[in-house]
Amino acid sequence: MKSPARMILATGCALGLLSAPTAAWSAEQPRPAATTTPKPAAKPSAKAKSVDCTKVKCIALTFDDGPGKYADKLLDTLKKHDAKATFFLEGQYVKARPAFAKRMVVEGHDIGNHSYTHPKFTETSAEKIREELQKTQDVVKQATGKYPTTIRPPYGLLDDDTRVIATEMKMPIVLWNGGSRDWATRNEKAIYDEVLKNARRDGVILMHDWVAQTVTVMPKLLTELKKRGYHVVAVSSLPGTKSLKPGEVYPAGSEKDGDLSTDSPTADQNASAESPSDGS
């Protein structure tokens, strides 16, 4: 085990990044060799609605550890409410539920990399961190036709090795500034109240699409957020995301917020932080 040079909480996702010269996220990932008859890329069925979050009140709901077994129901709700989200995917569950991951991309949501098997990066070698992230990049690309463009480390923990590898992979790191504690309470009212308590303009909220109560309460929550004037958008629509550099942490200053530990499953080592298997 190694001592982390620094531990910070990360949560929730996102979009294309960049190497230094460009201003939009556009990670250059290795691409498969071209074939003589390439298959055309699937066209999104729901183009992301243009929302200027510098002019209107926005909030980003982010979902970790998926695709969870209830992701299809969540996607139905998001589509019905014309809302976009950010999904931080685990490679092992993308492999188990590739259709859900593909649908996230087709319907205009952001996707990020949440490792392959959910290890603690602060207790993992740099070589293993790199392997976890690259393996997830590859399986997500195979399932969806696109690479994840942001990283959220498992359990919200990262150190200098994680920053260095994120920079190498040309990906920013997305944390959060509000939680739902859905993994801990598994209670619809508690989740609803916690999200609304933490809602703020340009907020990034941590949730999980494998928690049944989160998915069940989502229609009511989206209705209330809209009533309060929020546009529910993907992280890539929030102010400042287009200029993020590889290895940079978003939201700005979130890595210094010690209170975020109460949102993360690491606050309770007995709580599952992973998307439960359903035999698929």
Rank of each mutant, 00 (worst) to 15 (best):
Q137G: 02
D202C: 10
L244Q: 01
R181A: 11
V249L: 11
A34T: 00
K57E: 00
V140T: 12
D209A: 08
L158F: 15
S275P: 01
K57A: 04
A20I: 05
A14K: 10
R103A: 04
T117V: 11
T62E: 02
P119K: 06
A20K: 14
T214M: 08
G145F: 03
K227W: 01
N177M: 05
L89T: 06
Q137A: 11
S115D: 09
S237E: 10
L15M: 11
N187K: 08
N113V: 08
C13P: 10
G112E: 06
S19P: 06
S261C: 13
F87V: 05
Y230W: 02
K128S: 10
D193M: 07
P246W: 07
K95W: 09
A10L: 14
E28I: 13
A23I: 15
I59E: 01
A33Y: 10
K135S: 10
V174Q: 08
R103Y: 03
S261F: 13
A41S: 14
M218H: 07
K242F: 09
V94Q: 04
V249N: 07
R228E: 06
T124K: 05
Q269G: 08
N177W: 02
H231M: 10
V139D: 01
Q269E: 09
H118L: 02
L225C: 05
K80R: 12
V217W: 02
I191W: 00
V56W: 06
W25D: 10
C13I: 11
S115P: 07
Q29C: 13
H81Y: 15
T241M: 04
K55W: 05
L222T: 04
T149L: 12
P98I: 07
K102H: 15
L157F: 12
L133K: 05
A252P: 00
A101F: 02
Y147I: 08
Y147E: 06
P265W: 04
P251L: 06
K189P: 10
H118G: 07
P44Q: 03
L157G: 12
P38H: 01
V195C: 00
V195H: 03
Y155F: 14
K120A: 14
L17S: 14
T22L: 14
D278E: 12
D110L: 09
Q134T: 14
M171P: 01
D64A: 00
S275Y: 03
P44L: 00
E274W: 08
R130G: 01
P246M: 05
I59D: 08
G247T: 06
P38V: 05
P246V: 03
S3F: 15
D138E: 15
K95A: 15
A23C: 11
A20W: 12
A34G: 11
K2H: 13
S115L: 05
Q29H: 14
A271K: 03
P154V: 04
M207L: 15
M7N: 12
R201A: 15
D159R: 04
S277A: 13
S115Q: 09
D64H: 03
I8V: 14
T54H: 13
P219W: 05
K227M: 08
S272C: 10
A234V: 09
Y70C: 05
I129S: 01
S50D: 07
K47Y: 11
V195A: 07
I165E: 01
A234G: 15
A60K: 07
L244M: 09
I173F: 02
K189H: 11
P119T: 06
D138V: 00
K80Q: 15
